[in-house]
Design a protein around this nucleic acid. Structure first.
Lengths: 234, 234
DNA sequence: GCAAATTAATGATTTATTCAAG
DNA sequence: CTTGAATAAATCATTAATTTGC
């Protein structure tokens, strides 16, 4: 209701009041700064139980366990009474199986370099049959593999240092210079198959990702998405 | 269970066997302008309960399910009698409002540098009251802002005298050497509030993100997630 | 005054670098 | 050492402010 919107406004106003300098900031943008209005966005907050938006929680997330040499201002408290982020089961880092690696390498050989969200989704689903895996693993794998192939190439061109290892996929083709693309970009907004549904009361908006997969992965596998452009850039 | 794995196995094997023919050596994709709309993996079949995992669709994304404005020159501008861009009027990139910028800058000043997923979620929810925004926008904003502030600083230190016009907020805290952290990493897997549910028949696994937000923004707002570690690194 | 051309700023992606687990 | 994970740097792409010509 109006109440809630008021809340937000209050919050915002509070912020600004809190920072006198902010006014400066507002007029600071030299060039592209238009007296743009917030548009109707505000209107949209019709009935809402506004979220807390607790600044403190932002600045000093409970998750800030150890702070290395931060030494920044903002004292922190090292509490962690509520591990809100349940340490996901599975523990550490992804350890790909042979099958997974095989598929990934094949895809790479085929030319895949930066799969988009949709593709990653599918790949992940398939590789999941061979072992626990998440989208980010696929995402990172391609990034790392690409970068390291390039590195390897560069290195080999320089001084051929012994490269004893490498379970070389026999018959592997040298992937020479498969890159250096003209770099054409599309810059489109990413797209995922996400639906937004207004829902019951919920002080904060929560994101729920539902993956309707066939097999029952151990209930509760988290699925992460990430920023990816829809079409492979190239 | 065994069933599905077997199937996958088949699939995988198929891929490998396919490999030779797929060598895209010849299919130079200088221009991914794929006329072929074969899209839809969705359309595909369902012949098997197993997902398609169509390699072709991977290599040749065509991902533009819809709205893919195709890429470039080439016959674009095709009408669209229905200006009904289901994409929001802003269609393209995020254009922050003053309020949004103000809040973000404040948070930055407060010391926030790399908000974690949870934080971003909250920030996004709040900023959403002032205008359309997605998590990735917040994520990028912090990255860009941080990088550009650093850039600015470096430049000013190198160049001539210290910037005379610094609108330095009186008594404002020094921007501190907020960088060059010892780089301590936590290496945790990102976490978002995602749930996985096995679901009804569906040839392909699809991801559905449900945001139970209050305001009903034009139905169908896409929500993207991104890779973020749960706790701010530092 | 308005609209095309120019330009500054900045949003969005990719690449390079780095840290740390095994 | 190898490589998964994460961030920072570099780069591209698009928008809005400004300029220019009428």
């Amino acid at each position: 209701m109006g109440m809630s919107s008021m809340k937000v406004h209050q919050f915002a106003r509070g912020l600004w009041e809190h920072e006198p300098s902010l006014t400066l900031g507002c007029t600071k943008r030299l060039r592209p700064l238009a007296p743009r209005l917030a548009n109707t966005a505000a209107a949209s907050d019709t009935t809402t139980t506004l979220a807390p938006f607790d600044l403190k929680s932002f600045i000093r997330p409970d998750s800030g366990p150890r702070k290395l040499g931060s030494s920044n201002q903002l004292q922190e408290k090292k509490d962690s009474p509520h591990p809100q982020v349940e340490t996901h089961p599975g523990g550490t880092r992804w350890n790909p199986t042979q099958e997974q690696i095989g598929i990934l390498e094949m895809l790479y050989r085929e030319g895949m370099r930066t799969p988009n969200a949709q593709q990653i989704e599918q790949i992940t689903a398939q590789l999941g049959k061979y072992g626990k895996i998440e989208g980010k693993n696929v995402f990172y794998w391609f990034q790392n593999h690409k970068a390291r192939e390039r590195q390897k190439q560069k290195r080999s061109s320089l001084g051929l240092s012994h490269s004893p290892r490498t379970p070389t996929p026999l018959g592997e083709v040298v992937v020479e210079r498969e890159e250096d693309n003209p770099y054409k970009r599309k810059c489109r907004s990413w797209e995922f198959d996400c639906l937004v549904e207004g829902d019951h009361s919920s002080s904060t908006s929560s994101v729920v990702c539902k993956l309707d997969n066939d097999d029952a992965v151990e209930g509760g596998r988290t699925l992460e998405l990430f920023p990816l452009h829809p079409e492979g850039r190239r």
